[in-house]
Simulated assay, not measured.
Amino acid sequence: MRNQPKYSFFKNTGYALNGLKDLIKTETSFKIELILTLILLPLIIFIDATFVHKALMFISLMGMLLAEATNSAIERVVDLVTLEHHHMAGRAKDVGSTIVFLSISVFVVTWAIVLADIYQ
């Protein structure tokens, strides 16, 4: 039997917003990336770029937040299972950090390529 309540759009939206509130409250990295996102979103709107360029910029920016949320979820589950040092727990957390690192790399490269193409 699965450990989840019956599907309800409004309840599920509430769970998602609770998770977002918790991330903002407890995760410094998420807060930093969220502030960066809020600063850069208007730039995407007002920059003189094609729709495809803007979409790539937006997707790479949101990917960073998605990766940080995923990493936080991995870390919390690992900490729930064990607070003792275990090599597999460390490996799981390292993979979560790799997800964040790769998403930031994709963000930086995407923005650099798009901005270079626009302002060449």
Rank of each mutant, 00 (worst) to 15 (best):
I39M: 09
L43G: 04
T26C: 09
G63C: 09
L66D: 12
I44E: 03
L61D: 02
S29C: 09
L23S: 08
V95S: 13
F46A: 02
I99R: 02
F51Q: 11
S72F: 09
M88R: 13
T98C: 08
H53E: 14
E75V: 10
L40F: 02
A69G: 12
L38C: 11
I44G: 04
V78W: 08
V77M: 14
S97G: 14
I44N: 05
A16C: 08
E33V: 05
F58Y: 10
E84L: 09
L66V: 11
E84W: 04
L66M: 14
T50G: 11
L61A: 00
V95R: 14
S97H: 09
G96H: 00
I74P: 00
T82K: 03
R76Q: 13
T110D: 01
T37L: 09
I59N: 02
S103K: 02
L43V: 15
T37I: 07
N18Q: 13
S29V: 11
K25I: 04
T110M: 00
L36H: 06
I39W: 01
R76G: 13
I32S: 10
F30V: 00
T28L: 11
I45F: 11
L65H: 05
T37C: 11
E75N: 15
L20A: 08
L40Y: 03
E68D: 13
H85N: 14
F58Q: 03
T50S: 13
A55S: 14
K54M: 04
I45H: 10
L56G: 09
H53A: 11
H53I: 03
R91Y: 14
V108I: 14
R91K: 15
V78D: 10
G96E: 00
M57Y: 00
D79V: 09
A49H: 00
E33S: 12
A55Q: 13
L66N: 13
S60N: 03
L66A: 14
L20S: 01
H53V: 03
V108D: 07
L20R: 03
M64R: 02
E27D: 15
P42Q: 05
L40K: 05
